[in-house]
């Protein structure tokens, strides 16, 4: 038994040493990687200074072209959408990291059903993107605590890079950011466009904790005097009646403008703009961003956003 205890102790000491050395190496890799998500998160956490930031999942990442919005509205724009960030918890973490060094004037949050629906596979699954930054922001860390992963990430530094190690390392060899436009990276025409127009498979089961975080997100913006805008970009699916009812109700309660292009059926007659049912490819994104930028400008003008800003 004594031999086993020595063995276990030795393995634990080795593990600790490997973990800390490996964690330090992976931090360096993460901070120098040019893969798809790491540079964007790094930029948002450390240096972003644009006046308008679009946030959300891959739909935000692929649908909003900063230069078009910037040309239309006349303020600097950054596309902060992160592939696979999945729901409001991730957006809340990201917002806290941004606010720790910069206060944008406008945030356009691309919302979707995942932001308020109960998810069978677990709502906290996609937070690992932000694990390398654990310990830097107490509010962001609170989400990890709620997810039950905080101590795992605190104990093992290597584990923080679990979902990203290979991607980050590959990002040292290949630059996935070339041709980017302030966070937007165009994707090329797909092999096949979506061929059948189905109904949105919408089962309503609201997650009250997510709704709480939507409200927290709104409060945080209000606290920092940020104009928050909710958007739903085009989807090649026929929207279910009242699919975004919960979000629209919250938006109404808080005076948040809601641009819903999905329920409006934008581009349902243009499958050739889509990469798949829920993502536009570059051509569709350019056309959509022009429409959105115009609508946003109309809204900002209608509420006298720039006049108010000048007065301030």
């Amino acid at each position: 038994m004594k031999r086993l205890i020595y063995s276990i102790l030795f393995i634990i000491i080795l593990l600790f040493a490997f973990d800390r050395i490996g964690g330090a190496v992976m931090w360096w890799v993460n901070q120098h990687s040019n893969d798809v998500s790491a540079p964007k998160i790094r930029y948002l956490v450390n240096t972003c200074d644009q006046e308008l930031i679009t946030m959300g999942t891959s739909r935000s990442n692929l649908h909003y072209i900063p230069s078009i919005i910037c040309d239309t509205i006349g303020i600097s724009v950054y596309n902060g959408g992160i592939d696979g960030s999945d729901n409001i918890y991730a957006h809340y973490i990201m917002l806290n990291h941004i606010l720790s060094h910069h206060i944008p004037r406008i945030i356009c949050l691309e919302v979707m059903a995942n932001d308020f629906l109960y998810q069978e596979k677990g709502s906290f699954n996609t937070l690992s993107f932000f694990a390398p930054y654990i310990g830097l922001n107490a509010r962001a860390d609170s989400v990890f605590r709620e997810a039950g992963t905080y101590w795992r990430y605190k104990i093992s530094h290597l584990y923080r890079y679990n979902a990203k190690a290979v991607s980050n390392t590959a990002g040292l060899l290949v630059n996935r950011q070339s041709g980017g436009d302030n966070g937007y990276i165009p994707i090329s025409q797909p092999l096949h466009f979506p061929d059948t127009l189905k109904n949105s498979d919408f089962v309503f089961s609201c997650d009250s904790n997510k709704v709480k975080y939507i409200r927290k997100f709104i409060s945080l913006c209000r606290e920092h005097n940020i104009l928050l805008v909710f958007t739903v970009s085009p989807v090649y699916l026929i929207a279910s009646p009242n699919e975004y009812g919960v979000l629209k109700q919250i938006a109404d309660e808080n005076g948040i403008p809601f641009f819903d292009y999905h329920s409006a059926g934008l581009y349902l007659d243009h499958p050739e703009y889509f990469k798949d049912n829920v993502h536009l490819w570059d051509k569709g994104a350019r056309l959509f961003t022009s429409v959105f930028a115009h609508d946003l400008k109309m809204y900002l003008d209608s509420v006298g956003f720039f006049e108010k800003e000048q007065v301030k």
Partner: peptide, 13 residues
């Protein structure tokens, strides 16, 4: 023992 620790680290990462 190093083999065990290294394999665990690989799996963690």
């Amino acid at each position: 023992h190093t083999y065990i620790a290294a394999a665990i680290c690989y799996i963690l990462l």
